[in-house]
């Protein structure tokens, strides 16, 4: 079942890794094969990645038009939701929700900024604007 590693993915970094997959054949034996995933799995993965890309782009537009704080963009970029981010940074959930709004983001304490920057693996200066 060796096939082309990459027929569905739009980004060619994806789908390079071969996995061990089990099969049950009609003769009643279990087989192990090392190979690439078949098309259905790639389709559903691509679906998820399309959604993530869309969310990131939406967040970027929102930040540029001033409806949300840059934190939203970096949160979506790291595939997290507010709950995840709150756990990663160690900041209360309701505070994270407020920091996603520009007006609250502007008055954020330096301590929180540092926490976010560390959790998202960027610098504090980067956190203040989107590229």
């Amino acid at each position: 079942m060796e096939q082309d590693s990459n027929p569905v993915y739009k980004d060619e970094r994806y789908g390079k890794n071969r996995e061990l997959l089990y099969k049950y054949n009609p003769e009643g034996n279990y087989e192990k094969n090392v190979g690439f995933h078949e098309e259905p799995e790639r389709v559903i993965l691509q679906q998820a990645w399309d959604l993530f890309q869309e969310r990131i782009e939406n967040a970027r537009q929102k930040v540029l038009s001033g409806k949300a704080s840059p934190l939203l963009y970096y949160m979506e970029k790291s595939l997290a939701d507010p709950m995840n981010l709150s756990m990663m940074a160690g900041i209360a959930f309701w505070k994270v929700k407020l920091h996603l709004k520009p007006s609250f983001f502007r008055h954020m304490s330096e301590k929180s900024q540092k926490k976010y920057a560390e959790a998202l693996n960027i610098t504090v200066e980067q956190l203040k604007k989107v590229e």
């Binding site: 997959l21 089990y22 995933h37 259905p40 799995e41 559903i44 679906q47 998820a48 959604l51």
Partner: peptide
């Protein structure tokens, strides 16, 4: 469609050995 995709992703991808 996305939710259904999630069921399938949990079942098939990332080290499940299939199904």
């Amino acid at each position: 469609s996305f939710y259904l995709g999630q069921i399938l992703r949990m079942a098939e991808d990332f080290g499940t050995g299939g199904a």
